[in-house]
Design a protein around this nucleic acid. Structure first.
Length: 190
DNA sequence: TGTATGATCGCCT
DNA sequence: GGCGATCATACAG
């Protein structure tokens, strides 16, 4: 167990890590919030970038667990993943939404909007708010600029699972996890 | 509340 | 040349 990572064992299966990440606070240079939505991806999973093996774009998915994988989506947005399992497994968790906690003003400035609810509601929005770019690819999550903070055990979180968003393959896998009742999800959990 | 569309980059066929 | 783990805007109902 790696305690620098909010007590989460990133060598576990991606769906297990995704579920455990709900409620954990993610900070990048001190800016961020509580993770309320995450999706798991695995090499055996046709919807995953790693499905067809390593490429120049996805190589960090095949690196050590507890590292970041940042990619560009649709030519304009950045998306942040946490690598899981062992090196070579190509498993990861896409961070989809945060409840903003720290650095609200900087996030509003970067996003050019006021609505707190939409600051980090979606993988692309979240990266814009936290200033995550290609420069943050393949970095250890246990070291700056990243910081993970475990949830307060006195306040247990209720986690719901459902189908993932924005994919066309392996649509049936219930590998999207979300904090029950959160206002900060990119879409409501069913 | 929902569906459609354009923006625009890097990889794969 | 096509397409995608997206977002913001525009319009219909």
């Amino acid at each position: 167990m790696i305690t620098d990572l909010a007590g989460i064992d990133f060598s576990a299966d991606a769906f297990e890590v995704a579920r455990q990440l709900i409620g954990v606070t993610l900070l990048v240079h001190g800016v961020g919030g509580r993770i309320v939505e995450a999706e798991a991806y695995d090499m055996s999973d046709a919807a995953a970038h790693s499905f067809n093996g390593p490429t120049p774009r996805n190589f960090s998915m095949f690196g050590p667990p507890g590292y970041s994988y940042v990619y560009r989506s649709h030519g304009l947005h950045w998306c942040l993943n946490f690598v899981c399992r062992e090196p070579g497994h190509g498993a990861g968790v896409l961070i989809r939404a945060l409840e903003p906690v720290a650095g609200l003003e900087l996030m509003r400035e970067r996003r050019g909007m006021e609505d707190e609810r939409l600051l980090c509601a979606g993988p692309g929005r979240l990266c814009q708010a936290l200033g995550v770019t290609r420069a943050h690819n393949n970095l250890p999550l246990a070291a700056p600029p990243f910081r993970l903070v475990a949830p307060d055990r006195a306040l247990p979180v209720e986690v719901l699972a459902g189908p993932r968003i924005g994919i066309s393959k392996a649509v049936e896998l219930p590998w999207r996890f979300g904090l029950a009742g959160s206002r900060f999800l990119s879409k409501p959990m069913r």
